[in-house]
């Protein structure tokens, strides 16, 4: 029978060290308190980071427990529960905006569409529930990358593929987009994923104020935008919807 796996034991020791209170530790602190070589410790921390169990503060370079750990427990919000809570408000969003509404969550390296409401005209449309969208170019994906640290690390490690001539592909430029998204509380996609299509999205928070998903509308660029960008009316409708869903999830007023 094989013995315990050493690197897993070490990873567990690191998680225990970071657990308990708001702890942030630098690489050398972790290495020295566990009596490990820096190189070994760094390898384990990076792996844990990839899994979302550990996060590294971009400024100080220190490590702390990652958001993915929170998802492991019972407090994890079921995506179908999220859809059920969002139903009334996303219907209303599609009606008030005249565009198709989407609710997306992070799944692996992309956005999983968990709910889709048709554009309220009589055209034939196909339900896109279950489809995946890119994190780096869609409004939903940018919102998740900006507000959910796990999504952020996924996108930071992936390639920013040029899907249209307007896709932001350089990492520094992309980080600026995320910063703007955090600052104003919503994201846009102006023909960065599909030619002729624009979208706008805002974050949905749960009771613990964790960003659990993003909600938004997508449509033809000439309807969604005016000369200066996304129409203000649509931005307001999307943000109202995100707030209403968050409120139903118990996030309180904000």
């Amino acid at each position: 029978m094989p013995g315990p796996i050493q690197s897993l034991e070490r990873a567990a020791a690191i998680l225990r060290l970071l657990a308990g209170g708001e702890r942030r530790l630098g690489l050398s602190d972790v290495a020295s308190s566990l009596g490990l070589a820096k190189g070994t410790t760094h390898g384990i921390l990076r792996t844990l980071q990839q899994e979302g169990f550990v996060e590294q503060d971009p400024v100080s370079g220190k490590y702390q427990l990652g958001a993915e750990l929170l998802r492991l427990g019972n407090s994890y919000l079921d995506v179908h529960e999220l859809r059920a809570r969002a139903l009334v408000w996303t219907d209303d969003l599609a009606r008030s905006s005249g565009e198709a509404a989407y609710l997306g969550v992070l799944h692996q390296q992309g956005v999983l569409i968990v709910h889709h409401v048709f554009r309220p005209d009589d055209s034939r449309q196909v339900l896109e529930v279950g489809a995946m969208q890119p994190l780096h170019s869609t409004a939903l994906g940018k919102v998740l990358s900006a507000f959910d640290p796990v999504a952020h690390s996924e996108v930071a490690e992936g390639e920013l593929a040029a899907l249209t001539p307007r896709t932001v592909t350089d990492p520094a430029g992309f980080e600026q987009v995320l910063e703007l998204t955090r600052a104003r509380g919503w994201a846009a996609d102006l023909e960065e994923t599909w030619d002729g299509v624009a979208s706008v999205a805002a974050p949905v928070y749960d009771r613990r104020r964790m960003p659990v998903g993003a909600v938004g509308v997508t449509g033809a660029v000439e309807r969604v935008c005016d000369e200066s960008g996304i129409r203000a009316r649509l931005v307001a409708a999307v943000r109202d919807c995100a707030r209403a869903v968050s409120r139903d999830l118990g996030a309180g007023r904000f």
Partner: peptide, 17 residues
């Protein structure tokens, strides 16, 4: 922060009549 992608600040606008 300036906002190059939207035409107006939507804060406070309600989408309901």
């Amino acid at each position: 922060m300036t906002d190059p992608q939207t035409s107006a600040d939507p804060t406070g606008t309600s989408s309901h009549g």
